[in-house]
Write a protein that binds this DNA or RNA. Structure first.
Lengths: 364, 364
DNA sequence: CTGAAAGCGCTTACAG
DNA sequence: CTGAAAGCGCTTACAG
């Protein structure tokens, strides 16, 4: 009672209950316990026995050891969800959607590159987990290559990167087109783009499609120095402040931001510089984050169906795994529709422009 | 070539490399491979042998199977991080901090209650993972009770709930006090509180401490009907709109919101109702979310050190696990300082009021 | 310095 | 309907 360490041996109370414990308590064999807890007893174990085993399972609080189960079955029960940023609510929603679609059948492991470890190292660690597959959002090309080598992989939001790979994309280009038409309709002639770093495919497409559709509407995307930042409101704010003079000098009347997060920072910079939105300057983003309806003014943005993206990709991955087919062979499946299930190669989700108060008629 | 299914057998290419493969390739035994990959070879394996094994490990791409390793060592290599909401950036930052502190030694598993499964079911699943411990943020009392029963657990941000349990708290009461003094100093006499549901301890304390310190400053916290919502900007916006007339009728000049997320919704409601912030109404929150500096006006709020909270709790949990002591025995350690390490019972992190543009002198 | 063997807790044919 | 036994891929005394 006086010594804190002697009153209880270290780790006491944490002894796990094993199938053997349940078996001896119920007076049956381990095999029977296994059959019962895995619901494979029908026609193989007497109902009374099942009841007896279940009672002991409850009483003792038995839970199957996943490590042992996986080792025995050779099954890979985990799926990795790899996203660029944990703190970005967009990816949180994507992850949630994926977990909803996969959580029943697999343990979902979220990779957290933000913690600062080398993504490759993370991957190595993941490989030890007997992964059944992976979901990779907006990946860098290197990451993609390593991951998909021998693992069923579904890629999210990486428009145009690797053809023929199972993937679900957002129709980012169409979103940019809608936004371009909206701005042209409002009379904007000179538009700038607040770019994101690192510049993954999805950002490149947003930029390029915007330029194309602005041009076909008779307007132009003007290049402004330093109008680029990480995906972070604070960084975007600083970039906006730095390039504001150039923006004004170039006669820009509308700025499209690579993400809503960028737009928040840009909006604040306008407020601080006395630039009225939208009367002096229109501002728009991409994502439609939950908060975008609540900033001032509420943000015009291209809405991406985050949870649908995650859910859809999750479903696709589940099917890929069920087929027992890896990414490479799926790619070659495309040319040979054999009347079986359709190829999984690609799915594009529609996006929608949401017009709110941050865009308006072009100022002179 | 024509049949998509015959060109490759299901799952082909996914055969894992085992220690036995490395062993035979290197001409050594499995034991030696194990010793080498676990860096336990010094003084036990010849350096040339080590080199040979390592070469084969690299060549074959061998990664130790975690399931087998855990089974063999009996080690619990995973730690669960349980937070109320995945999509709330505050908890994302907390989780990141925890992962940073624990990620090296453990696999960190994030529990995602938002997916909609019963938290108790989640817990059962977690138990099969050979958890070494758990971090639980702002838990419901039931959850806490089940979790800590036989698992080293550190509780985060649950002020005043369970005494004597290893925990790290935010000095929420002090934050509320600072905010109360700030408002009193600005001349506010009638203040309202936008409450959060579900009302966990941390929210109760914010509310109570605010009331107390407002009172001691000669001001009062007035009760306003329907001024309550989920932790969500949209829900808060609706609640704000609904209670705005009552707020005005009651002569309230400042509203403190349970979280910044609530404040975003409230701010928008003010904008829509033509209530100027801060000249007509002051608004403040708790959290200091990354975005709070970028809303309009920038939000006065009590800053919580999210990553420090996660990191600190992670460190504490790691020590708890290293000691091989569970939550209960730690509690009893408190009364018996035996010259050993200090009790882990509690740690309180300071918080700081951040004054921005959303609070100002009380309107008439 | 090296390897054969036991054991971690399961699942799954297989034999009764 | 039930159980003994092999095997999943490791780690770790133990014996050489």
């Amino acid at each position: 009672m006086t010594s804190a360490t002697s009153e209880r041996e270290p780790g006491a109370g944490r002894a796990r209950v094993r199938a053997a414990d349940v078996a001896s308590a119920a007076g049956v064999s381990i095999s029977t316990v296994s059959l019962v807890v895995n619901d494979k007893w029908e026609g193989r174990v007497a109902v009374e026995t099942v009841a007896r085993v279940r009672a002991e399972v409850d009483r003792l609080g038995y839970v199957v050891d996943e490590s042992a189960r996986r080792l025995a079955t050779g099954g890979a029960a985990a799926v990795a969800v790899v996203t660029p940023a944990f703190t970005n609510p967009f990816y949180a929603r994507v992850s949630l959607g994926a977990a909803a679609a996969l959580g029943g059948a697999f343990q979902v492991v979220f990779s957290v590159p933000e913690v600062g470890d080398d993504p490759m190292a993370t991957l190595e660690r993941l490989r030890g987990l007997r992964l059944a597959g992976a979901l990779v959002a907006a990946p860098s090309p290197e990451l993609l290559q390593v991951l998909a080598r021998d693992l069923p992989t579904v890629v999210l939001d990486a428009p145009g990167s690797v053809a023929g790979r199972p993937r679900v994309d957002l129709d980012v280009a169409d979103g940019a087109a809608q936004l371009a038409r909206h701005l042209v309709g409002l009379g904007h002639q000179r538009v700038a783009f607040l770019r994101a770093t690192p510049e993954t495919e999805t950002f490149r497409v947003r930029h390029a499609a915007l330029a194309t559709h602005l041009a076909s509407g008779g307007a132009s995307l003007v290049d402004v120095d330093r109008l680029v930042s990480d995906v972070d409101a604070g960084a975007a704010h600083a970039a906006a402040l730095a390039s504001m003079p150039a923006l004004v000098a170039a006669g820009v009347t509308a700025v499209v931001c690579a993400t809503d997060l960028h737009a928040y920072g840009f909006l604040r910079a306008c407020a601080e510089r006395g630039i009225a939105v939208p009367s002096d300057m229109s501002v728009a983003g991409f994502d439609d984050q939950p908060l975008s309806a609540y900033v001032s003014p509420p943000l015009t943005t291209v809405a991406f169906p985050a949870d649908q993206l995650g859910r859809e990709a999750g479903r696709m991955l589940a099917e890929l795994i069920a087929r027992g087919v890896d990414a490479d062979s799926t790619a070659s499946t495309r040319g040979a529709p054999d009347g079986g299930r359709p190829a999984l190669a690609a799915r594009v989700l529609p996006v929608a422009l949401v017009v709110r108060g941050s865009t308006g008629a072009a100022s002179r």
